Amino acid sequence: MGLPLIEDEADIRWITLDRPEIRNALRVEDLDHITSAVRSAGPEVRAIVLTGSGDRAFSAGMHTDTFAGATPAAARESITRVRECVGAVRLSPLPTIALLNGFCIGAGFELALACDLRVAHPEVRFGLPEIRLGIPSVVDAALLHHYVGLSKAKEIILTGDLYPLADFSHTGLANRVVAPAELRETAVDLATRLGAHTAEVTAAQKGLFETWLNHGLQHGIDTSVDVFAELFEHPATLRAIDDYRPAPR
């Protein structure tokens, strides 16, 4: 138990946070390991699934000693590595799925928000308790209001409380909610479906999501026209069009 486990099973890369004795709390070296595992995925990998060891937690976030006694320079260095790790997940050209098997807190919650999809069981609890430590929620906590609305995001961040998944049932925060025994099978099914498309179109579509999030409407529309046309440079696009058959009704 220690650094995240990296395992390639078929065409899925599994990244398992592996400190179950501390609810898979993250240390700085874990962040670098996750970043490397995401960025080093070769063409044989079609999707990435992140999860946590055991049955108690996806992740409790950064270990509480990470920022103890830190200087501003040291705090900036640590949080920059959080940003790099979470950003690697969000910006990966591959589809990413968070398999949430328990507490999903702090930087662990940010990792889950950075993933494209989330699979959870009904007892998962979420929270951003940083404010209770005298520090703000940052990095991909900036995405939270897109999932749950600004008012609820402010409540979650400003209280630092933990919230049951049921509080987000109307938001789609979890794409699939299943029994604990069904989590892995559900994640594999989603990863297989997402990974079945051409690598080129998945990367392009994910890039457009970033454009739509970060720029205005007209810029997003204009960029999407360019991206659409550029995909026709790839033989894989033309093959996919030739091979496409509508699903039977």
Rank of each mutant, 00 (worst) to 15 (best):
I48T: 07
I48C: 08
L50H: 02
T51K: 00
G52C: 08
G52V: 01
S53D: 05
G54L: 04
R56E: 09
R56D: 05
R56T: 03
A57E: 06
A57F: 10
A57W: 06
F58V: 04
S59G: 02
S59Q: 05
A60Q: 03
A60S: 14
A60P: 01
G61Y: 02
G61R: 07
G61Q: 03
G61M: 08
G61L: 11
M62C: 04
M62A: 06
M62P: 07
H63R: 10
H63D: 08
H63K: 10
T64G: 13
T64E: 10
D65Q: 15
D65F: 14
T66V: 13
T66L: 15
T66K: 10
T66D: 09
F67A: 04
F67S: 05
F67V: 13
A68V: 13
G69K: 11
P72Q: 00
A73R: 09
A73D: 05
A73F: 14
A73Y: 13
A74F: 14
A74N: 05
A74Q: 12
A74Y: 10
A75D: 03
A75V: 09
A75P: 03
E77P: 04
I79D: 05
T80I: 14
T80F: 14
R81E: 01
V82F: 11
V82H: 03
R83K: 09
E84Y: 06
E84K: 07
E84Q: 10
C85G: 00
C85K: 04
V86P: 00
V86Y: 03
G87E: 03
G87C: 13
A88I: 14
A88L: 15
A88H: 12
V89M: 09
V89T: 07
R90C: 07
R90Q: 09
R90M: 10
L91P: 08
S92W: 12
S92A: 15
P93G: 13
P93S: 15
P93A: 15
L94W: 02
P95Y: 12
P95V: 13
P95N: 13
I97F: 11
A98D: 00
A98Y: 07
L99K: 04
L100W: 06
L100P: 02
N101I: 01
G102Y: 00
G102C: 07
F103V: 10
F103R: 09
F103P: 00
C104P: 01
C104Y: 01
G106I: 13
G106C: 11
G106E: 04
A107T: 00
G108N: 06
G108F: 05
